[in-house]
Structure formats: structure tokens, C-alpha cells
Simulated assay, not measured.
Amino acid sequence: MGFSSPEDGSHALDLSLEEASGLPIFGVAVHYPAGHVVPMHTHSHGHLIYADRGLLRVEAESGQWLVPPTAAVWLRSGVEHRLVVPVALQAHGLFVHNDICARLPEADCVIHVSSLVRELIMALTQADKQSLSATRMGLLGELLIEEIHAQPALPFHLPWPAGNADSPIQRVCQSLLNNPGDVTTATGWADKLAMGDKTFHRRFLQSTGMTFGKWRQQLRLMSSLTLLLKGVPITQVALASGYESHSAYTTAFSKQFGQPPSVFSAKL
């Protein structure tokens, strides 16, 4: 949410009026067309990013987050990030003053958006600010902070290896990101990189904080959300994501996200 809509030339958002209001939390809503990318930027405030439909991807140096309409991404102040928009959507950005960020998650994460949280986000980002009193805006913001604090973190984060883009582990991760259905085993990748199995596994774990198998499954499941969004049949989604069958994919998806893909896709 660091830039205005593409129709305005993607210039940086002017938040001076909102910042001058003195409110602890304020927000904006911006329309983005399909395929749009908001380039890397940072904010001096804590930042909550939500899209009321579609699937928004938020990328930072530490990893990537996929955000369905039932979730939002929380980023601490100063975290450099960019937005990737697979389908046209309305993005809602909320900015939280640093003096109250201590009441929110200490790490960047995806949180559940309950019906109440959604309505609060809409009220703070879409309402005519001149028609609402500062007192009411302040109370809405306070309630939103309390609700965010109560929401559980969700498994929509894919950690990304730190370091040079040409590093061996980064090359493996980028290759799998480009082709989630790649069935090359850890041994196969180790051979391609001319390193032993144990060395590959150790370096992968050190770079991402996850084992190769767990990271690849997380990638496959998260990547499959985009296919579900496009209405691709679940069996085709399963095969494209590297699973041998509809049932194997459904089992893994349900274990990761707490519901089968048929239920999840109905909410997109």
C-alpha cells in the first residue's frame, strides 16, 4: 500500500492528512488491476494489508505471504515489501502508530480476518473521514487493535532464504517457485549442486528454517491457491502441484489449512 492506484501513475500514497489526524490507526483503500505489481517500499508505521476478494501476494526479503479474503498480512514498521496482484481487487491498508504496535504480533505474519475484523477494516478504510468524528474513528481503531491481538496466526507464510540470489539454496527455491510441481528429490538437487545429501539438507534448513520436504510442501500448497482461485478443477490442481492424486492433495491441504480445498475455494 505504498503506492496509489495504477490509474494515478503508481505514485506514492499521500498519507499526510491521515498522519496529521493524530489517530492511532488510519487506513486507505486502493483498486489494483490484475497483474499489477506495487514495487518494493517501506512504511514508518505498522501495516495491515487486506483484500476483500481474490488472492494477494506480499513479498519481503524474509519470505512471501499469500492472502485470501479470510486473512490479512501484518508487517512491522520498516519492513520492505512489495505487492503482487494476480486478479483485480480492492486492497485495504491500515497503518498503526509505533507506540501501540507493541500490542500486536512481534513478527510479520498472516492473521485470520473474522467478520468483525472485516467490518472494522472497511469502516476505517472506506468511510468518508469527514463524516466520522475523531472520537468514533479512534474507538473503531482501538477495537480493531484488540481484535487483531486476539486473532491466531495462519500458515500462509513461505520463508525465503537470505543472501545472494545466486546462492545454491536460493536457486533451488526459485526453481521450485517457478515450477511447484517439480518432483526432483533432495538427493537430485544435491547432485545438481555437486554437494552431499547431508550438506544440502543442513544448508537448506539453515537458510529457510524448514526442512526441504516441509518447505516444498508449503510452497506447493500455497501455489495451489492461485489455481483454485482461477477455478481449475481440484484434480488438475493436485497434479499441477506435484501430488499424485486428488485425495493426497486434499489430505495435505486439509492438514495445513484446516479445511479441504473445495471448502476453501468456495470462499475465494
Rank of each mutant, 00 (worst) to 15 (best):
E106V: 12
L120F: 00
V117Y: 05
E142P: 02
E80Y: 08
E59Q: 13
L140A: 01
V58D: 04
G78I: 03
V79G: 08
V84T: 13
I100W: 00
V79T: 15
S133F: 09
V58A: 09
L55A: 06
N98C: 08
M137R: 15
N98E: 15
D128M: 10
S77G: 03
A51V: 05
L140T: 01
L139C: 09
I100M: 05
G138N: 12
S131F: 09
P86F: 07
R57T: 13
T70W: 09
G141E: 07
A51C: 08
R82S: 13
I121Q: 00
H112E: 15
L143N: 05
E142A: 15
L56F: 05
L139Y: 08
E146K: 11
A127L: 07
A91I: 09
V87Q: 14
G54R: 06
L120H: 00
E142G: 10
A134N: 12
G78W: 02
T70S: 15
F95A: 04
L56W: 02
E142H: 10
G63Y: 02
F95E: 03
H81G: 10
L140P: 02
L83S: 14
I145W: 01
E146I: 01
V73A: 14
V84A: 14
S115C: 06
E142R: 13
D128L: 10
C101H: 00
S77V: 00
L144R: 03
T125N: 02
Q90S: 13
G54Q: 07
L139A: 14
K129Q: 14
E147H: 12
L56V: 06
G138K: 05
I145S: 01
E119P: 03
M137C: 11
R76C: 07
E147N: 10
T125F: 04
G93W: 02
V84E: 15
P68G: 11
A127F: 08
R103V: 05
H112T: 14
H97A: 11
V67N: 07
E61Q: 13
V73P: 03
M137N: 10
A60D: 06
E106S: 15
P105G: 00
V113N: 09
P105N: 02
E61H: 10
